[in-house]
Design a protein around this nucleic acid. Structure first.
Length: 581
RNA sequence: GCCCUCGUAGCUCAGGGGUAGAGCGCGUCUUUGGUAAAGACGAGGUCAUGGGUCCGAAUCCCAUCGAGGGCUCCA
């Protein structure tokens, strides 16, 4: 039976209430904060009377099922504000008092009751607790009351609920699959990267296969950028603190930068971004309107002092390489240039096999004062972004309050092949830095004008991208990306010479190929190449030496039979230039 | 930074107040084998670090460091 997404939301919201009820029965005195449904799951934030541990989850889950089996009807009760406050005071739920006090005057205040449990809630809910049968509590975490780090840390219990056992099993299998694809696990197994406490948190070391992968991705994008009129530049890893003061980042993000380094009488910063350097290059000559758009691109490694608890594999690190570019345009060029940047980003995603993406337009929150720049500038640039995505017919969502302090942005979220969303590429419009660094170009009228900057990074960062690609492909990269594209397996020692000949031919045409000449049986080598996710295994023995052929085995498919070596090489080259997903 | 959990061999993990275990990997030897694991032998650990309790601590307690799951943050 097909169900609407809101049916699942309702079920999970009710499951969250059921969990709260179970908690109160098991641990009377527990204070309830909020308990919403989220994608595929639900949680409840509570202040427990004693610490809740992972072992307690089973107990709570069993209690939930026991209460559900009482087949309690779930009823909605609406109360005037004063009665509502009296009610939550009587059941001693101070967080609910706070929530009611924050509700607007005209709000309808409703409660939902099941048995002797009652909770403040807008609803809707399912009709009876008995519908909650397939539920699993997943984890425990800390969460601040109202998401504010200055508030008390509550205990958040996550769970998931479904209508059938099959759905629940499928979901739990998906979580297992995600664990199996974890890029931190695959990164080590496949020799992509490592993290070492000796080096420091969030500072990955790239292993040989990872370095090859990075180079492959870099040269792909560099080539695309050259075609589109980008100018490559290289800038240093440190620069004077003054630059970040001028840019405004020191004031906004100073606490998440590495401490300044004293050099002679100056303060230097490990660069947290490349913008000020590219700006200096722009300023090094008088620019004309004929030079614009002026596009500077760099794979720039930046360092940010991310909070220790936030570091995670390759997806959140303290040193990372952005595929950064700053484009200086005349205001009237902004719209067209923005569109061509979006076009490049989409081309990149398609080539990488990440076809399932959505865009998010991040606008400023008009009520906040954290933004710089005039209202007119914001209105113009926000309108330009929306017009561009509209004209390109893209699906997008609008997120108010998600803009950077200096301008609105367009972010791309990709969905990997098991449905998880990740943020990758970004395009940002910036009227602020040109102002702060007093940038100009000479217009056709002979007078100076102020350019607009576009910051953009299709990959976002090499680290994040590779983390996501590892999980998306579960380590089994398409041929053009695979760090080792093929391994040649000589059957016996006397075939090693022939294997080396084939390898030389393949290296000649830029195929990344190795020879496995270890003293092991072919079956063993095949098994190892499969686990290392190498796309092709080339077995050579007496028959092949005789015929000038090679026996090709395709990863996870199997033996493709023997073919002449030249034909095999042509097949590989063809697959690389015409990738299929 | 905050809450919870966890640190045993290179990796994955078992064990547990009385002299450290397995599989994989690694080394040596035998084996030259046609598509997912040949066989034998061997080396490897102050059980994260520091303190405490105890006749005795890898094991119990505390602290520190590190990792994981979240929260806050994310230019």
């Amino acid at each position: 039976m097909a169900r609407a997404p809101q049916d699942f939301d309702t079920l999970r919201h009710s499951a969250s209430h059921l969990m709260a009820q179970a908690l109160l029965e098991l641990y009377p005195g527990t204070k309830l904060a909020i308990g919403p449904c989220i994608e595929d799951a639900f949680y409840y934030d509570v202040e427990p009377t004693q610490p809740i541990t992972g072992d307690d989850l089973v107990t709570i889950e069993q209690k939930m099922l026991e209460i559900a089996s009482r087949e309690l009807p779930i009823e909605r009760v609406e109360l005037p504000r004063d009665d509502a406050l009296a009610m939550v005071a009587q059941i001693e739920q101070p967080y609910k008092t706070e929530i009611i006090n924050d509700l607007p005057d005209e709000a309808v205040i409703s409660f939902y009751r099941q048995g002797d449990f009652i909770d403040l809630c807008r609803g809707p809910h399912i009709a009876n607790t008995s519908a909650i049968k397939y539920v699993k509590l997943l984890s425990i975490a800390g969460a601040y009351w109202r998401g504010d780090a200055r508030n008390k840390m509550l205990t958040r219990i996550y769970g998931t609920a479904w209508f059938t056992q099959q759905e629940l099993d499928d979901h739990l299998n998906k979580l297992e699959e995600a664990k199996r694809r974890d890029h931190r696990k695959l990164g080590r197994e496949l020799g992509i990267f490592m993290l070492s406490p000796e080096v420091g948190g969030g500072l990955p070391l790239w292993l040989p296969n990872g370095a090859v992968l990075r180079e492959t991705l870099e040269s792909f994008l560099k080539k695309e950028q050259l075609r589109r009129g980008y100018n490559p530049v290289v800038t240093p890893h440190i620069g004077k603190l003054e630059l970040w003061k001028t840019s405004g980042h020191w004031g906004h993000y100073g606490n998440s930068m590495f401490n300044p380094i004293a050099v002679d009488d100056e303060q230097y910063m490990l660069k947290p971004m490349n913008c000020p350097f590219h700006i200096q290059i722009y300023k090094s000559e008088t620019r004309s309107y004929r030079d614009l758009p002026y596009r500077l691109a760099e794979f720039g490694t930046v360092y940010r002092y991310e909070q220790s608890g936030e570091l995670n594999g390759l997806t959140r690190v303290r040193g990372f390489t952005q595929d950064d570019s700053h484009i200086f345009v005349a205001p009237e060029q902004l719209f067209e240039e923005f569109k061509s940047v979006v076009e490049l980003i989409l081309h990149v995603f398609n080539t990488l096999g990440l076809q399932d993406y959505t865009a998010r337009v991040s606008l400023r929150d008009p009520a906040s004062d954290k933004y710089v720049g005039s209202d007119e500038i914001w209105d113009t640039s926000q309108a330009a972004i929306i017009r561009a995505v509209d004209e390109m017919g893209m699906q997008y969502t609008v997120a108010e309050g998600e803009a950077a302090f200096y301008g609105p942005k367009l972010d791309f979220m990709v969905r990997d092949c098991i449905g998880r969303q990740w943020q990758l590429g970004t395009v940002q419009v910036d009227y602020n830095l040109p102002e702060r660094f007093d940038l100009e170009y000479i217009g056709s009228d002979g007078a100076p004008h102020r350019p607009v900057m576009i910051h953009r990074a299709p990959f976002g960062s090499m680290e994040r991208l590779i983390g996501i690609l590892l999980e998306h492909y579960a380590g089994a990269f398409p041929l053009w990306l695979a760090p080792v594209q093929a391994v040649i397996l000589p059957i016996a020692d006397r075939h090693v010479g022939y294997a080396r000949e084939i390898q030389a031919k393949m290296l000649e045409v830029d195929l990344r190929v190795k020879v496995d000449d270890r003293n092991e049986k072919t079956g063993y080598k095949v098994r190892e190449a499969e686990t290392k996710k190498i796309p092709y295994m080339i077995v050579v023995g007496d028959r092949d030496v005789e015929a000038g052929s090679a026996s090709v085995r395709k990863r996870s498919v199997g033996d493709q039979g023997a073919m002449p070596v030249d034909e095999m090489i042509a097949m590989f080259k063809n697959e690389i230039t015409a990738p299929k997903y």
